[in-house]
């Protein structure tokens, strides 16, 4: 049985957890009930991951766990040990410029207040990996599990298509289609 190193403070057992986030390693001491979303924001200090509903409905907290989108409010930090977590801070290009999905959101006005945006960016990044050349219908399907209260979904769906175009896959098959969508 793997029993992470533990220490007592205020009677609650603390777990030593080594988390790998955006390629960097963080050693944190947390109780088992610390949600991954809170660990990322409070213990590690990466506040790009937003917390809306805290029960899995809104999608704002979505991060990639071993490349797969998951709700960080529905995971405990202890459970994420040994897995690679990617937050919105990890989506930029190596030179510090915006990644394709981020750039597409900027190009298409895919955000207003930006609260929901980190969850959309992580989700779309993973979805475009599986389907690099989505139709508008598929793009809309990709973001169906994320809520946005102010931008509206038209521009967000356009941003998905624009991101596909920026990543190159869209160009070969339907350049006009994606460009039109981006302006819509």
């Amino acid at each position: 049985m793997s029993d992470p190193t533990t220490a007592d403070t205020d009677g609650e057992t603390m777990h030593h957890v080594r988390l790998s986030v955006n390629g960097a390693t963080y050693d944190i001491e947390v109780p088992a009930r610390r949600l991954l979303s809170d660990a990322v924001r409070q213990d590690i200090g990466l506040t790009g991951t937003h917390v809306g509903c805290e029960h899995g409905v809104c999608g704002a907290c979505t991060v990639l766990v071993d490349g797969v989108p998951m709700r960080s409010c529905l995971m405990f930090a202890v459970s994420a040990e040994g897995q690679e977590v990617t937050t919105v801070e990890g989506l930029g290009d190596a030179d510090g410029s915006l990644g394709a999905v981020q750039q597409a959101f900027k190009d298409c006005h895919g955000l207003q207040c930006g609260f929901c945006t980190p969850g959309f960016l992580t989700t779309i990044t993973a979805c475009l990996r599986d389907n690099p050349d989505p139709t508008r219908e598929e793009a809309s399907e990709m973001v169906a599990g994320n809520l946005c209260r102010c931008t509206g979904y038209q521009n967000i769906v356009s941003a998905v298509l624009r991101a596909a175009e920026l990543q190159g896959a869209g160009c070969a098959t339907k350049p006009e289609h994606a460009a039109q969508e981006a302006q819509a």
Binding site: M1, D3, P4, A32, R33, L35, D38, V78, S79
Partner: peptide, 17 residues
Amino acid sequence: MKPAPFAYLRPECLQDA
């Protein structure tokens, strides 16, 4: 923190669980 405290075990095989 939202959940109440609990002890946490993470067995590596079914028998241990």
